[in-house]
Design a protein around this nucleic acid. Structure first.
Lengths: 240, 240
DNA sequence: CGGAAAGTTGACGATCATCAAATTAAGTGG
DNA sequence: CCACTTAATTTGATGATCGTCAACTTTCCG
């Protein structure tokens, strides 16, 4: 009985899935993948779709396969803050809690691989390796959240915008030249989202972007597409 | 051979330790406690002591036994932000990373139970239950960080102060009447620390505290001791 | 082409930071 | 225990940054 080293026994669903390489599914053995894949399904959601409501019962987890999901919190009078952005292949979910205390919404069109909560939790029991990956991701998210607290609490509007653009560039620059100091990408967020992420207003976001453009640190095409000729020049404005 | 059900075989160091009840050590069997206790030691640090420097190699973890530890991040020009506060019996440390990217400093006099990093990691391998507790704490810290992001990004100075006082009251009100709407406590932070926590200046912190006192929402004795006659009245000012 | 949504720009004002000085608390050595 | 020093906090005056309100422009999509 011969075995193809890499893909034999791996569910079709998972063969080319990024989550199996850089995401949490990388922790699983082929037979565990098979078992999990049985109860999982791919799911598309278009920009703006609410994936999970505040105070809603959580019964599914998911991997982000493409697109960006925003996690938000809202005060009773409507003020909103984005408290997390999830890119592929992040794991979406909050183990050990039955109710969500935040909203998850598709910031762009997204595709997800959804699992029943119970299936993941069973798998976590069976695979310490999976739990460890989830733990690592939680720690990474905690690091990011803390970096963001500095931005929210101590940076100026101009620095916030520069920091935000840098973060996005690092996550989704398609031209991905590792040493190249240039970058270009489409913003996954509207001005309103950026404002909610940075604790600013739309107007301030717009003004600061205009200023960066006037100073030739970035150029903007069609509102959404950003070109950064020199990341180091942008970085100099992030105030770290 | 008789066994005292509760304390037999438990290291003296641990018998009355809070971390064994509500903290991560609760995950360990008596013999594991014994093994860990061998390499652990209690440690005192007075207010202001740096426990861990940014970019420093991490080689010890610790449980906070009493007092408050503040986690801070500093920008190159000196602006500072507190990104976490740890109370007893929190676990202090960042598994899976060899270098710290933040500072830990004793905000009050603290006592710690310190462990060599390697010992904890060995124990994590041996005890999924321990890893799970650490994971849970990381998730709790993430929840707190996200709540705080809303405060930093979207609340006014007045609301920030009220939110801060509420958080402290919940953590360290010694009079701990669960249904009682009143509370009293000593602030574990100086005005400067509170400012760094809330993304404000000392002056604004002072003015907002003065205003709360003028409005009889709190009273202040000796700068540090706060009495809150009605937590619900304070909560109404937190803007949630 | 036309209407709605998203983004930009401008004028003005409120909140909070900055600078400066006064007051209170906390140590320290005599 | 008290004078003296130093640190922490409060208070006041002023100004900059960013939010608010409003009008205008661009982009998107049927």
């Amino acid at each position: 009985m011969r075995k193809d080293i890499h893909t034999d026994g791996i569910p079709v669903l998972c063969v080319s899935c990024e989550a199996r390489h850089r995401g949490v599914c990388g922790a699983l053995e082929p037979e565990q993948l098979v078992s999990l894949a049985k109860s999982s399904h791919k799911q598309q959601a278009q920009s703006g779709t609410e994936l999970l409501g505040d105070a809603e019962r959580i019964d599914t987890y998911a991997n982000v396969l493409s697109g960006v999901v925003k996690l938000t919190k809202t005060l009773s009078d409507g003020r909103q803050q984005i408290v997390g952005l999830q890119f592929a292949p992040d794991f979406l979910g909050r183990p050990f809690k039955t109710e969500s205390d935040l909203n998850a919404e598709a910031a762009t069109d997204v595709s997800l691989c959804a699992f029943p909560k119970a299936a993941v939790e069973r798998m976590m029991q069976a695979s310490p390796e999976l739990e460890r990956r989830l733990y690592r991701q939680a720690l990474d998210e905690l690091d990011e959240a803390r970096d963001w607290m500095v931005t929210l609490g101590r940076k100026t509007a101009a620095e916030k915008i520069a920091s935000f653009l840098l973060m996005i560039a690092r996550h989704i620059d398609p031209t991905d030249n590792p040493d190249g100091d240039a970058a270009a990408f489409d913003l996954p967020l509207t001005r309103a989202d950026i404002a909610d992420f940075l604790g600013l207003t739309i107007e301030t976001v717009s003004r600061q972007l205009t200023r960066l453009r006037a100073d030739k640190v970035i150029s903007i095409e069609n509102n959404r597409h950003i070109v950064v000729p020199s990341l180091s020049r942008l970085e100099a404005r992030a105030g770290n």
